[in-house]
Each structure stands twice: as C-alpha cells, then as structure tokens.
Nucleic acid binder design. Structure first.
Lengths: 136, 136
DNA sequence: ATAAACGTTGACGTTAACGTAAACTTTATT
DNA sequence: AATAAAGTTTACGTTAACGTCAACGTTTAT
C-alpha cells in the first residue's frame, strides 16, 4: 500500500497543507494514519474522500458546518447500504426524507441558475446585435 | 411617487437595515434619495434593483466584490443597449467576451450540480429499496 | 552523523460580511 | 411641545475559513 505525505496530497487536491489539517481538525475529513514519528500518511482512499469533500463543497455552496452534516448523512447511508450498519426503519425514513430535501434544494438552485443563465444569454444576443459586423 | 424607508425595504427584501447600508457603502446598490433630514428614501426601482442584487448573489455564489464586477458589467450593457451610452466596438467585444465567460461558468456549475443531484437520486433509490414496505 | 528538508502543534493574524451598541438627529404621535 | 419611534453615523465586535509564524521534532540526503 502506498502512502502519501501531506505535501503531495496538498498538491494533488489543490488544498493547502493548512486546509488539510484544518479540515481534519473540524472533522470534515477523517484523520489519516501516522508514521512512527508523527507524520500524516494518507492512503489513496483518503485522497478520494478528500476529493469528494471538495466536490461537495464546490457544488453545494454550503458552509463547512452544513457540509459536515451532509457528509455525515451520506456516510450513514453508505454504511447502511453496505450492510455494515443496521438502522431502525423509523430513522431510515427520516434519513430518506433528509436526502429528498437536499435533492429538492439542489433542483431549485439548478432551476434558478438555469433561468439566470437564460437571461444572460438574451442579454448577450441583444449585445451581439449592436456589434457591427466585419463586412461593410 | 411612493417612497419607502429603510425598515420597510428591509422587511420587503429580507435584508437587514445594516446590510442595506453596508451594500450601499460598498457600492453594491446605489445610494437612494434622502429626506430633508437625512433619512434614506427608496423608490420602487431602488427596491427592484436590490432584489436583483439578492438574486444574483444567491444564484452566482460570488463574493460581494465579484458581484460588484458582475453587476457593473450588466449595468454597462444595459446603458449601452438603451443607447444611453456609446461604447467603442473594441470594448464591446471585450464586454461580450466577459459575458460569455460568465455564461460558460454558470453552465459548468449547472452541469456539476446536475450530476451531483443524479448521484444523490441514485443513493435515494438504493435507500428506498432497503426500506421495508408496509405490506407483509 | 549532520545538515537540509519536511512535518508537527500551538497560537496569533487576516479578510469578508455583516452584528451590535453608543451617541445623536429626524419624524411621528399624543 | 414633548416624548416615543425610527433613522443616522461611527466604531468596535464577531464568525468562518483559513494564512502565517515560531519553536520544535522527524526523514532524507550527503
């Protein structure tokens, strides 16, 4: 198994070393292994998880706190569907409801962005009409 | 013409009075009229502009600085298309390019959100399959 | 084995985007 | 006319999300 030190991970993910430590500190990413001394050693899976966090952060536009909640939700579901974890059906429906809520939120955002984009496109069209063409 | 004081505008827009003054201070919204004393008096158009700012902020997820740039761009275009302002064609194409860039950015974001949403939907489907139905 | 390079943990600094409180003025109400 | 209610500016406070620096320990390279 190959291990990566923090600087490699930083360059790979585009985060800074500080941010990696910070995200670990607030529980956004799980603490990686350590060398005999104290060096952080990240596995490929760790790095994948970090990429997921980054993706979710960029896409959702949440605060890190909200992001934590969301990732915790996903983790719960992942563990459950891998049957590593049994969840009482009452909580399960609650979790499903939570997830549906997030999806609806996303859909709303997407729709708003789409209509905003459409407006901008109209603006652009009008603008192009006012630009004189090269042919005379 | 009807004028609105800051508190009404705050309740109407959902911003706080502080935020209204702050946005004015940093030039995100234009300074409204004033009463003979010093009270801010907003017109309906002012309020509309504020709503636009809020929409752009929510949809674009920009910092207020970036938002300023963007709104300035839109203003330039608006003034131009209303022919209140003549712009040399060189700058015009530059402006158009800027706008196209923003649109592409939006499109990218939308696509990412869409595929993220799709993932969540799959997750939800799998989750529902593990929930026992009411019939036995 | 010793220096250079890299890592670690504090801890204080910074920036954006407001919140909050004070001291004062203007408008509305009785 | 006087008091309350709402507004004004000024200025300091706060929170999130890191940046930066110091003092020190660990690996790697020579």
């Amino acid at each position: 198994m190959k291990w990566y030190k923090i600087d490699e991970v930083a360059r790979e993910t585009g985060l800074t070393k500080r941010t990696l430590r910070f995200y670990e500190e607030i529980g956004l990413i799980k603490p990686p292994e350590r060398s005999e001394g104290k060096f952080r050693l990240y596995s490929e899976e760790d790095i994948n998880q970090i990429h997921n966090v980054i993706l979710a952060r960029e896409v959702l536009g949440f605060s890190l706190q909200e992001l934590q909640q969301f990732l915790a939700l996903k983790e719960t579901i992942r563990k459950h569907t891998e049957s590593k974890d049994e969840i009482p059906p009452g909580q399960l429906t609650e979790i499903a409801r939570s997830l549906e809520e997030q999806i609806l939120m996303l859909e709303k955002k997407i729709n708003r962005m789409q209509s905003f984009k459409n407006e901008l496109n109209e603006l652009l069209t009008h603008l192009h009409e006012t630009i004189p063409t090269k042919e005379e």
